[in-house]
Simulated scan of single mutants.
Amino acid sequence: MGPQDVAAYFAPLLRLELAELQQASADTAASRKPVELDQQSVGRLSRMDAMQNQAMAAAIETRRRGRIRSLNAALARIESGEFGFCESCGGSVPFERLALDPTYSRCVGCRA
């Protein structure tokens, strides 16, 4: 399988995951909003629970944003013809490695 075939194989997978993550980010935007501290509407424990849920949602979004950046970088490498080549040594990144995670940009020998 040549470099163009590898890129053609992974491009739709990358785009699909990117779309799913962007949709999940949009769907969970409300859960990351600051917690309202109105003591009349909810009790102290409910506010603490809401604050914990908001913090967890923010942490998930941080990880999601990191993955979105990785996916966009991989798609940019596809567009530039650099996908499947190690950004450090220029050698090819094995298909098996890309199958584990198509955002990998380094071969096994150069991985950080």
Score class of each variant (00 low, 15 high):
residue 49 D to S: 14
residue 69 R to L: 07
residue 24 A to G: 09
residue 52 Q to D: 09
residue 76 A to G: 01
residue 70 S to E: 14
residue 36 E to S: 14
residue 23 Q to E: 07
residue 64 R to T: 06
residue 27 D to V: 11
residue 16 L to W: 06
residue 56 M to G: 07
residue 29 A to G: 07
residue 72 N to Q: 14
residue 27 D to C: 06
residue 72 N to R: 07
residue 37 L to R: 14
residue 51 M to D: 10
residue 74 A to Q: 03
residue 82 E to R: 13
residue 79 E to L: 08
residue 73 A to G: 10
residue 64 R to A: 10
residue 72 N to L: 08
residue 39 Q to L: 12
residue 49 D to L: 13
residue 47 R to M: 08
residue 48 M to G: 06
residue 48 M to F: 12
residue 94 P to I: 13
residue 39 Q to R: 14
residue 37 L to Y: 05
residue 67 R to A: 10
residue 73 A to Y: 02
residue 1 M to H: 07
residue 3 P to L: 15
residue 6 V to I: 13
residue 29 A to D: 04
residue 11 A to Q: 15
residue 34 P to T: 05
residue 7 A to H: 00
residue 1 M to W: 05
residue 16 L to F: 10
residue 55 A to R: 13
residue 66 G to R: 12
residue 71 L to R: 00
residue 78 I to W: 01
residue 60 I to K: 14
residue 68 I to E: 13
residue 47 R to D: 02
residue 19 A to D: 15
residue 25 S to Y: 00
residue 93 V to T: 00
residue 95 F to V: 05
residue 89 C to Y: 00
residue 67 R to Q: 01
residue 2 G to T: 14
residue 62 T to M: 13
residue 28 T to S: 09
residue 7 A to Q: 00
residue 50 A to F: 00
residue 20 E to H: 05
residue 59 A to M: 05
residue 29 A to N: 04
residue 17 E to G: 04
residue 93 V to F: 03
residue 75 L to D: 01
residue 45 L to E: 15
residue 95 F to N: 14
residue 38 D to H: 03
residue 10 F to P: 08
residue 43 G to F: 04
residue 4 Q to T: 06
residue 34 P to Y: 08
residue 76 A to W: 02
residue 5 D to E: 15
residue 34 P to N: 13
residue 59 A to F: 08
residue 14 L to F: 06
residue 72 N to A: 04
residue 17 E to T: 09
residue 46 S to F: 03
residue 103 T to A: 01
residue 31 S to L: 13
residue 61 E to G: 12
residue 57 A to P: 12
residue 37 L to N: 03
residue 91 G to N: 07
residue 21 L to N: 03
residue 53 N to P: 03
residue 14 L to H: 09
residue 95 F to I: 08
residue 98 L to N: 01
residue 46 S to T: 14
residue 79 E to D: 15
residue 89 C to S: 05
residue 86 C to T: 08
residue 17 E to C: 02
residue 48 M to N: 12
residue 12 P to Q: 11
residue 29 A to P: 05
residue 76 A to T: 08
residue 15 R to I: 01
residue 30 A to D: 05
residue 36 E to V: 09
residue 92 S to C: 02
residue 18 L to V: 00
residue 10 F to K: 08
residue 102 P to L: 00
residue 19 A to T: 06
residue 76 A to C: 07
residue 70 S to T: 05
residue 112 A to N: 14
residue 29 A to Y: 05
residue 48 M to V: 13
residue 8 A to I: 11
residue 64 R to G: 08
residue 77 R to A: 10
residue 6 V to G: 07
residue 110 C to E: 02
residue 4 Q to S: 02
residue 20 E to W: 01
residue 109 G to M: 12
residue 13 L to E: 05
residue 20 E to R: 02
residue 4 Q to K: 11
residue 8 A to Y: 11
residue 54 Q to S: 10
residue 100 L to K: 05
residue 106 R to P: 01
residue 105 S to R: 05
residue 57 A to C: 04
residue 8 A to F: 01
residue 44 R to C: 02
residue 77 R to T: 02
residue 8 A to M: 08
residue 101 D to L: 11
residue 70 S to M: 07
residue 16 L to T: 13
residue 50 A to V: 03
residue 27 D to Y: 04
residue 91 G to E: 11
residue 1 M to S: 07
residue 19 A to P: 06
residue 26 A to M: 08
residue 26 A to H: 13
residue 32 R to T: 01
residue 61 E to V: 03
residue 21 L to E: 11
residue 27 D to M: 12
residue 20 E to S: 05
residue 19 A to C: 07
residue 91 G to W: 02
residue 49 D to C: 02
residue 77 R to I: 04
residue 38 D to S: 02
residue 45 L to F: 12
residue 70 S to I: 09
